[in-house]
């Protein structure tokens, strides 16, 4: 570690650096793992000095704090920070914005699932809970696709229905989300297909109610399509897709 900058670890650890000097050191810290380790240890040391200063707060403070936290929303966990050196600058930030939008759409999808749950009978509640649990697992899978370096977002709309797909060819996964998708007619379902020059491969049957779905996507997929099929789905599409999303720009 370079001597001039690294001698600031102590001052930084006890918040004794200000302004540009602090900013400059933080910049240095991002590139000097040895310095970062020393800062962690010196902070830990300073923490013990803090513990040593412990003093009983006024008794009524606890009630006030507990009252306030009961009305305070917690922040979502931070995503793993991307190392600066590996980030694809412009491209990444543009996709970043779109992915943030897509993530909020996932949120809306999940919120719809939760919202529905509030009005069900006990038996239906149990089913809803199951769906929520499934959505929870899928949520993690979705997050993985959202954070894939090659993730792309594609939109399509048909009538009042809007579909958003996030695809990662590297992971071979697609997250399909819809809004205002009309329910399939009686004895019918909507089915999602991966389409290439050879034909269509089923990616699964969609659940009514705009529930987001994560599905395996074969390599070389050019388009995704949604068709209406008999209940249970079909091995091959029996109708023309009413919604098509082209993966090629």
């Amino acid at each position: 570690m370079s001597t001039e900058m690294s001698s600031l670890t102590g001052a930084y650890a006890v918040d004794a650096l200000t302004g540009p000097e602090r900013a400059e050191f933080e910049h240095h810290l991002a590139e000097c793992e040895e310095c970062a380790q020393e800062v962690r240890e010196l902070r830990e040391t300073a923490g013990l000095l803090g513990v040593a200063a412990a003093e009983e707060p006024p008794a009524e403070l606890k009630g006030r704090v507990l009252h306030e936290i009961a009305h305070t929303r917690q922040e979502p966990p931070m995503a793993e920070p991307v190392p600066i050196g590996t980030r694809k600058r412009r491209e990444a930030s543009r996709w970043g914005t779109r992915l943030a939008v897509a993530a909020s759409v996932v949120g809306i999808g999940l919120a719809a699932v939760f919202g529905v749950a509030a009005w069900q009978s006990q038996q239906e509640l149990d089913q809803a809970r199951q769906r929520i649990e499934q959505a929870g697992t899928r949520g993690a899978e979705m997050a993985r696709v959202l954070h894939a370096p090659d993730a792309r977002v594609i939109h399509a709309s048909e009538g009042g229905a809007v579909a958003t797909v996030i695809v990662s060819a590297d992971l071979g996964k697609a997250v399909f989300m819809s809004e205002h998708m009309p329910a399939a007619p009686e004895d019918k379902v909507h089915q999602l297909w991966a389409i290439d020059e050879q034909g269509a491969t089923s990616m699964g049957v969609l659940t009514d109610g705009d529930v987001p779905v994560t599905a395996d996507m074969p390599g070389g997929t050019a388009k995704l399509g949604v068709t209406t099929e008999p209940t249970g789905g079909s091995p091959q599409p029996t109708t023309d897709p009413f919604m098509l999303l082209s993966l090629r720009a």
Binding site: G10, E41, L42, E44, T45, L48
Partner: peptide, 17 residues
């Protein structure tokens, strides 16, 4: 600046951090 760092390092070692 350097005494501050030296002091904290000495405390770190003395406290076993």
């Amino acid at each position: 600046k350097t005494r501050l760092r030296d002091g904290l390092i000495r405390l770190r070692d003395c406290l076993g951090v």
